[in-house]
Write a protein that binds this DNA or RNA. Sequence first.
RNA 1: GGAGAGUUGCCGGAGCGGUUGAACGGGGCGGUCUCGAAAACCGUUGUGCCCUUAUGGGUACCCAGGGUUCGAAUCCCUGACUCUCCGCCA
Length: 419
Amino acid sequence: MIDLKFIRTNPDLIRTAIQNKNEKADLDLLLGKDEERRKLQYEFDNLRARQNAVSQTIAQKKRSHEDATQELAEMADVASRIKNLQSNLAELNATVESLLLTIPNIPQADVPIGKDESFNEVIRYVGQPPTMDFVPKDHLDIATQNSFLDLPRGAKISGSGFPIYTATGAKLERAIINFMLEYHIQNHGYTELMVPLAVTRKTMTGTGQLPKLESDMYHIAEDDLFLIPTAEVPVTNIYADEVLSYKDLPKKFVAYTPCFRREAGSYGKDTRGLQRLHQFNKVEMVRFVEPENSEQALDEMLADAEDILMAFGLHYRVVSLCTGDLSFASQKTYDLEVWAAGSKKYLEVSSVSNFGEFQARRANIRYKDSEGKMRHLHTLNGSGLATPRLMIALLEQYQKADGSFQVPEVLKPFLELRI
RNA sequence: GGAGAGUUGCCGGAGCGGUUGAACGGGGCGGUCUCGAAAACCGUUGUGCCCUUAUGGGUACCCAGGGUUCGAAUCCCUGACUCUCCGCCA
């Protein structure tokens, strides 16, 4: 969340951010409630001060056996007023808090302004689309021909969007995950975590998925737990309500998890094969850094994700998301879009974002800097990478004329098999 | 799922309902001493909110939320978490 004091003193900046992000947070309501709250707080504090002082007097008089009926009478009245104020104040605080949670992060100054993805900026293209001396097939055809996937049965047991990877397909998927994990651990200095896949409402709020995106989550009502849409959620929240030392920073974690998304409202769009799923696998990188270093950390993470694509020899492009396409919590995001040689289009396989202190404020993650000052740290995360669309690109690029699949060199150590 | 114990400041650990933001010990930080260091001694040591900002002041916080009371870390209720035992189980 944004610092309430900052909002109070820079309302126009916030208003613009809300607009540019296509959000519909009610800033004026928040400001009004905040003012009301401060007034009550002041009143409450003063009344309490009175109560504390007189209570001392009462204590003293009682000890020296003096009469305190006058003080007691006054305090009975004060106490009931305090009680009233207190419940009003608690209610107001809750209101302000929940309104505050609907204010999005402010896009960084260098983020292109625009209302939707058509305003995103391609930063660069890397590599070339492969040249093939035959007409390449689409990933689903390759997968079907080689028995890598069983989508119909996945749909039978769970509904569409829940793929089954079969035999070699499963092994291939596992090899890809392992390759990426090991790459980040060994070459980029990340520490691996295995984390819970179901998290609390508070955790989901900490990273900014809630309250906005509740309808996109799988929710277990009985325990009020949510299936994670990305490892970002559990990993970023591991330090919630903690105070770290500047000596602990930066921290770099990588985690593989399945991800669950209801994808409400996106039915029928780009759904062939593995393009859009309710459950998919992803290797996620998360960093906790000092504020001064977050912009550089973003560039590094982008490079970390790109390294994977380059290792596979895939052509891709880097896109800077415009304000309207930026997620609620992000202040700057790069997407990596890999080239699918068969479908002839770019597919998003990674999103690398700097959240500034936005998530750290929500999740209450702080650190003491080298001067002993308490501050919110900055959080970042990036996919490194999500597997389904990577699988699409690999199947389509590494297919042979007969429709068989040639295992990319870098995967061979992770995949001791012949196809 | 059942039974019991616990949750206090950076850590350990006290705390008859009033002068306790919290004894005591340890740690950290600053200082004295020393050529340095150790030891000893002295001092200091949290966070949020509100008001005012040169400084300062008020208030809240002893797991969380309610309640009793003029007044609660201290009494009552509910919940969360941790530990032990039993049951169930990959």
